[in-house]
Write a protein that binds this DNA or RNA. Sequence first.
DNA 1: CATGAATGAGAATTCATTCAT
DNA 2: CATGAATGAATTCTCATTCAT
Lengths: 219, 219, 219, 219
Amino acid sequence: MAEIKEASSAEVGATAPGVRARRKAQRPQEILHAAFDEFVERGYTATRIEDVANRAGVTKGTIYLYFQNKEELFQDVVRKLSQPIFNEEQFWQEHQNRPSDELVRLYLDTVYEHMTVNPYSREILRFLISDGRSFPDLTASHYEEFVRPILTMLQHILEKGVREGIFRPEAAASQMSYILLSPALTLTIDKLLDCQTDLPELGDYVNAHYEMIMRNVRN
Amino acid sequence: MAEIKEASSAEVGATAPGVRARRKAQRPQEILHAAFDEFVERGYTATRIEDVANRAGVTKGTIYLYFQNKEELFQDVVRKLSQPIFNEEQFWQEHQNRPSDELVRLYLDTVYEHMTVNPYSREILRFLISDGRSFPDLTASHYEEFVRPILTMLQHILEKGVREGIFRPEAAASQMSYILLSPALTLTIDKLLDCQTDLPELGDYVNAHYEMIMRNVRN
Amino acid sequence: MAEIKEASSAEVGATAPGVRARRKAQRPQEILHAAFDEFVERGYTATRIEDVANRAGVTKGTIYLYFQNKEELFQDVVRKLSQPIFNEEQFWQEHQNRPSDELVRLYLDTVYEHMTVNPYSREILRFLISDGRSFPDLTASHYEEFVRPILTMLQHILEKGVREGIFRPEAAASQMSYILLSPALTLTIDKLLDCQTDLPELGDYVNAHYEMIMRNVRN
Amino acid sequence: MAEIKEASSAEVGATAPGVRARRKAQRPQEILHAAFDEFVERGYTATRIEDVANRAGVTKGTIYLYFQNKEELFQDVVRKLSQPIFNEEQFWQEHQNRPSDELVRLYLDTVYEHMTVNPYSREILRFLISDGRSFPDLTASHYEEFVRPILTMLQHILEKGVREGIFRPEAAASQMSYILLSPALTLTIDKLLDCQTDLPELGDYVNAHYEMIMRNVRN
DNA sequence: CATGAATGAGAATTCATTCAT
DNA sequence: CATGAATGAATTCTCATTCAT
């Protein structure tokens, strides 16, 4: 989490006119992160605004200067702290001319790297599973903006492989990317449950996942 | 839910001494189901005991005749409404002499049938993702009693296939069953999020899942 | 306390026609004693009817067969378990012709003996101090029936001593018995507070009390 | 009660920064007094936090800004509203060179004056008799801080009289002060019970008490 | 802008009392 | 008579939200 907070501070710090203004400009971010942490620890309903305020180093009233109410705060946490894994355009540019099986590997590495480094996606998934029914639009838009692109990206790689003839035609069937990505979700849920499942090393797991995909898509 | 209520009435109905006794015997089940429904709709923290009571057709006080407090009620919901998918022994007896690939198919059909017919496992997963950190033992024991057996069952089928030479030796590697079962979990989470993902028919999905497994385990 | 419970059982036991009837006849007494014990341990408000019932070996409903409600139960405990220390007439008959100073000693011994053997007076005093304002008539009538006679008895002894010329005339002044009996009340309060005051042996205390009286009343 | 409230305002009033701060500084005292009054009227258990709040002119929630819970409130009432009768050092300074019998009289006058003017000691005794068993440390520390010093003070006066030869040696025996002070406690209990005992004027009672003491301690 | 005292609508829990069996 | 399941009013305590300073 730290690296992200720092990233966001960095964005602001450089050109801000004074300490006061800098503080002020950061406030919403600081509050969002404090809220995120509290929501992770206690869940939405059990989190008290005052806890968020304390963690953010401000007082209750201040929260209400930046967020209408607790529900808005929650939704803003989900909306503003969600981070896309891929910029698809950039991915294609960076990896032009690579064979499709290598692209699958790069894709997978990126997905697991993101999951490893960054607790946001995982915990936001928890928020949506726990309290999403109270915020149906939020769930839908989060899915469209942050989940679907990941599936679409894989779909595009698979289609490329099919076009190139190294993947079998059925590899681009509609539900395929969905099924092929599943093991990553399984690992996520496992961490959310935090129960001692005896999983192997992450590296082995990624390899196994990669091989599973290949056996399904290769001609 | 229906089948459970009926089961419990059946146990008691015949020999119950009087109306009062019969009611008393059913109450805990009725309350558990009402609580389950409310927890599903609102989540643990946002559910009020009075809501549970109203849904169960009793008053607040009655809840406390049968459950110490809200936390115990929650834990009892998870413990008592969880249902094992397989009786492994019975599975083997019923399907003696079947070839391993057919067993995989039977296994998968059972898993998806269970998921379709019965909201308990799915919603209890939601409970544990949402509030499991407040009840760590609960999560652990639920995992051991209801989740691990499903993985173990698959593992045993895979091992049988390997022994018979129709599955490749790596099919019984430790993380394999974990990975191969993932698509079922994905579907579960999808339903928990209740967002309009454009999944195909369940039948097609199961077929795709089955084929994914076969491509990974066949020699 | 035991000896009193036994006393009351004994009264009934001998000639009762059957066990059932005997039980029934004892019920109110048993409930009163159970209630007394609970009130002593927890105080009036904090005592639950069910605790009383459990201690009496019956169920909640049964209490209401014998007592209108909790308030009545409390008042009956005070009224029916209060025990007079003296039967004044009997005292005079038994100790005819004794000199007055000896009567004072006999009187004092009786008072302290009663206090030692029997927790009722003390605890009923606690009840009245704690909750008497909710039952003003109760307090008044208890005072008249059980407290004033003790003071009057002493008053009469003092008057006798004055008549006989061995006590000075002022010994029979109106507030005198009140003041002279005070040390016994002090000891009672001390026990009610149950704080470790470093009082000497009871015997020494009674001697000191007796001497205090004598120094005040002797000519 | 008045004098205490005023005292606390005086401490703060002068330099307080604003109305809010001034209010905040007074609130705990105001609540303590309101709680005291309610506890006196209804007893600890029967007093509702809301009653205290209403009497203090605030709402329920406010009580909890200043006191953790009802038990703490009760204990703070006992601890913070208890007032020592004597500052022993000051007593000796003010009354240097007075004969011991005169000191006894001054002592007694102070005790009864305190009892007359100030309901705190009396009612706190009620609290401890009623509910002290739920707060054993409270009872013990109250005894040490507020009761024992009164007995010790008398003990010291008696010892001085013995040294000076005007009191007989036994006047300083350990239980003596305990016995000699008893009539004051009797009067206190009498007021707690609020039953119409036909006591004479307070002045006469104090005189009688004083004479009782003198007859016991004079050579 | 920021504060934090105050509010008051709830929510969990308890328990005297009733009444069908 | 006795039971004990059920009730529901009452009570403690919490916390999102407001607003005077």
